[in-house]
Amino acid sequence: MNMLLEIKNLNVTWGQGSRAARILDDVSLAVQEGEIMALVGGSGSGKTTTGLAILRLMAPELIMTAGQVIFKGTDLARIQESSLRDIRGKEISMVFQEPLNAFNPVLTVGVQISEVLKVHTRIPSRRTLARVLELLDLVGIPDPARVAGEYPHRLSGGMRQRAMIAQAIAAEPQLVIADEPTSNIDVTLQARILELFRDLRQKLGLSILLITHDLGVVGHLTDRVAVMSGGRIVERGMTAQVLRDPQHAYTQKLLEALKD
C-alpha cells in the first residue's frame, strides 16, 4: 500500500513567549491509501487540532512552529492558501462532530452539498441536482429529494450526519478526516454510520482518518490506530494488536474504561 498522508514532527503552539503552551508536541502520523486509521485520545489530547492542522484550519491563535504535512508529495504546511483551497474539499475533506453547527442554518442541505460540486468538479449546473441526489442516496438517505430541499435544523441527527458525509465525499476525495462523527448521535445510530464508512471505503476506495475518544468505535472499524495524550502520540500500531496488548499506560486506561 502507498502512503497517502504523512505528518512529520508536527509542533503546534498557542500563544507566545513565556505564556506559550505546546498543543502538539512532535506528532508524527501516516495514513495509507485505502485504510481506515484511528486517532484516539481524551479531550484536550490534541487529536482534533491534528485533524485541523492537516488542512491548516486551526484557530488563528494556534501556530504551527515546526513539522511537515506531506500529501501526495506536497507539503501542505508550506503551500499557498489558494493551492490549499484546491485540495480542501476535493482531495481531502472533513466531517465534523456536530452537524447542526457545521451546516449553515440559512441554506438548504442541497445547496451546501452542491457548492462542493460547483467549486471542485466540472459537473454542469443542470446535472448538479441529480448528482446531489445520487450522493444522498449513496449515504443511505431514504428520501433524497425531500432532504436536499430541507434546512439542516429540520432533519434528524442521523440524517444530518449522513448529509454531512455526503457533502464530504461529493468531490470524490482520497482522504476523509472524520472528527468524532458519531459522538453526538444516538448510540443505536452510531453503528449504522460506522457501517456507512466501511461501505464507502469499499465502494469508493476512500482513506479515512477517524478521530475519536471512543475505543469501542475503533475496534469495529479501523485498520490501524494511534493513541494521543497531552499533545503526543503515545502508542501506535495495528488495531487488533493494540487493543489486545496495549503497551502504554494511557492506552491501558482507555481500555479499562471501555470495559465498564
Binding site: 484550519l57 483551497r85 484546491d86 474539499g89 465534523f96 449553515n104 441554506l107 462542493v116 467549486v119 457533502q167
Partner: peptide, 26 residues
C-alpha cells in the same frame, strides 16, 4: 467564529463565498 464557517473553508470554497454567502447571510 461559527462552526459552519469552518466547514465552508474546509470545503475549499473561495474566501469571498465564505464571507459573503455563508457568514454575511447569518
Amino acid at each position: 467564529r461559527q462552526q459552519y464557517v469552518l466547514t465552508a473553508r474546509a470545503k475549499g470554497l473561495p474566501e469571498s463565498r465564505v464571507v459573503y454567502v455563508h457568514a454575511l447571510r447569518n
